[in-house]
Design a protein around this nucleic acid. Structure first.
Lengths: 149, 149
DNA sequence: GTAGCTGCAAACGATTTGCAGTGTT
DNA sequence: AACACTGCAAATCGTTTGCAGCTAC
């Protein structure tokens, strides 16, 4: 498990000029290890098993620091709570309302279509920093996954 | 001003089987009168001038009732606060981060492109209820408006 | 050594709730 | 008259903050 991973993590922190603390390492490892877009509290719950002394406030502060340094993304949900995402590139989200899941959805064709569309449009006095398609819906069978083809 | 409007409002409430109360009427009028995607508190502040006895909790409850009855939409923002929108049809949003504004953005061409794209894709075990493009960016001159062409 | 980080507890802002009283049907 | 709706205050939830002690650099 850890050490190859650890190199990546410490390097990422160092590149941003952040102090390499135990808490930052474990929080960062936790986020990059999942694609489930966890809340701060979910990360805290996960970590405190192995790190009983970590505090929820530190998890929040750490995540906020990561967001400022563009190591993670913060996304708002239809429920009003924030979730964190280790992917910082432009990608789309699928909100599954009956299971409360968020799925990443990336498709080069879609990206091309949207970029092409937005470039064609003239936005006067506006600088686009980011765009994404948000797809909302529900699983027909909540126990099963979704297949896209 | 009011009475033509009032008919529409009371009719909308009646169609949903909701009791026609003064509070519901003024809340609904307030939302349909703006395209600014106000928060519950902003609606409350606006209304209490003319309706000093209205309570913030009632505004929240009323809005929630409207959302359940699909009279208004609730949208989450990057700041984590909820905003309400009288438009319940599918449309896109532009988030302006330096002024904290939300603009509706509708374009038939874009709608066509997206619907066409999504229809072509097969989502197995998933029912799409809604989709929208979220465009984030900032105004170059915050005092001025945005023109799209 | 010192600036920056952590943990705790308290504070906060947005939203929800319980309940007694009021209004609509 | 019955039931749903309102207003108030208190409760709750997610998140932030202040500060004293600790740690990486």
């Amino acid at each position: 498990m850890g050490s190859k991973n650890l190199d990546i993590v410490t390097k990422a922190l160092a590149e941003k000029g952040l102090k390499i603390t135990h808490q930052r390492i474990v929080v960062y490892q936790a986020i990059i290890a999942t694609d489930k877009h966890p809340t701060a509290e979910q990360i805290y719950d996960l970590l405190k098993e192995q790190n009983p002394s970590i505090s929820l406030a530190t998890v929040y502060k750490t995540l906020e620091t990561f967001v400022e340094n563009r190591l993670v993304n913060k996304v708002s949900t239809p429920q009003g709570t924030m979730r964190y995402d280790a992917r910082t590139d432009n990608h789309n989200h699928i909100y599954i309302s009956n299971t409360n899941e968020i799925l990443d959805y990336e498709d080069e064709e879609l990206k091309g279509i949207l970029m092409n569309y937005l470039e064609k449009k003239q936005f006067e006095n506006f600088n686009i920093t980011d765009f994404k398609l948000q797809i909302k819906g529900e699983k027909i069978n909540p126990k099963k996954g979704i297949n896209i083809s």
